[in-house]
């Protein structure tokens, strides 16, 4: 499935809820379900500091695909992180760099992705794309 297809699937899942509370309950569940990253990966260089909540992200490159691990100290942020990872994990650097993540606009959770929210999510997306760019550069020897 492409990133965009997964995104559409996620948006469709969220459309099933009429009520904001159900959406958040689902998100909280996702947050609780996201595998915690290793404490060893919660080091300062993996930390994205938002004013409101913190996000840690690290990445591995295997067989031409990128796998991200991420965590947050706030559970709603963590739920959103898990949605993002579901869409972008196991894709090539090119796919990630060019990914259209606007599907999140249709989940009713768009507010959380506004830069003014300063929960680390916007920076996390940027960071994920940087990782993809770096892996690509390393592979093609342009770094």
């Amino acid at each position: 499935m492409t990133i965009e297809e997964t995104g559409k699937q996620i948006a469709a899942e969220f459309e099933l809820f009429d009520d904001w509370m159900d959406k958040y309950n689902y998100l909280i569940e996702l947050g609780k379900g996201l595998p915690l990253i290793d404490e060893s990966k919660k080091k300062p260089e993996n930390l994205i500091v938002g004013c409101q909540s913190r996000v840690w992200i690290s990445a591995e490159y295997m067989d031409g695909k990128v796998v991200f691990h991420a965590d947050s100290d706030a559970i709603i942020t963590k739920g959103l992180v898990s949605l993002l990872l579901r869409a972008i994990n196991n894709h090539t650097p090119d796919e990630i760099m060019n990914a259209d993540l606007s599907f999140l606009d249709n989940t009713g959770l768009k507010d959380h992705l506004s830069p003014t929210r300063s929960n680390g999510l916007v920076s996390m997306i940027k960071q994920a794309k940087f990782y993809a760019m770096a892996f690509k550069a390393k592979e093609t020897g342009t770094l």
């Binding site: 904001w20 958040y24 004013c51 409101q52 909540s53 706030a74 559970i75 709603i76 942020t77």
Partner: peptide, 19 residues
């Protein structure tokens, strides 16, 4: 986490600040 609490409280139309 304060951010989570603030998000839910906002849905009740209540403006508090978290952080």
């Amino acid at each position: 986490h304060p951010y989570d609490a603030g998000t839910i409280i906002d849905h009740y139309g209540i403006a508090v600040r978290t952080g």
